[in-house]
Amino acid sequence: MSNVPWWASEDFWRKTAIWVTAGMAVVLVVLTFDTVAAITAGHSRVPAYEVINKRIYYRMSTARGFQEPVIGADAPLFGKMLSPEEAEAMVSHGKLTLQARNCASCHTILGNGAYYAPDLTKAWLDPAWAGESAREYLMVKFLMDPTTNARGFGGKRRMPNLHLTEDEAKAVVAFLKWTSAIDTTGFPRNFTPIAQEGDR
């Protein structure tokens, strides 16, 4: 046992395990500080909540090689300009509704969740909502009674009625509008957004 060279000894590897783990943890913590700053709402990657007062475009960036959200002119949701506090409250109500109604056990959002129903990341920009101006009302109508307004695109799969109140449905729409403005580094790839008025 004394023949074991130092680089194969128990002691050496105990220390190595500790140092490697600690080193990686330190790198992770450093990157976490940087990332948390970048993804705080209103910073470089994640929009401020009052972005729901604006039009959100999705355009190809030649510099980056993929699509990215672009914030446009005023386009108040449900015709009402909100203060930053009101906007945050509404988006937050929407996210709470999303969690309490267990949406991510059928849908993915930012690609995470279940695979039974379509991804919600770009729900706000999806061409399924016919035109830009009618979209928010169509979304509310659908959310409040998805069984009747089911659009299985030819299939039998329907969203169950989760009995959203009008406030909840509107808040979910606000949350999804805000989500669509997150810079997801080009995910989902090749996304074809809804026809955006004044954009083409």
Partner: peptide, 16 residues
């Protein structure tokens, strides 16, 4: 943004 390089993801762009 050096990380992936615009080229990096660009190459998958013609994914038809």
């Amino acid at each position: 943004m050096g990380a992936l390089g615009p080229e990096g993801l660009n190459v998958m762009a013609p994914m038809g």
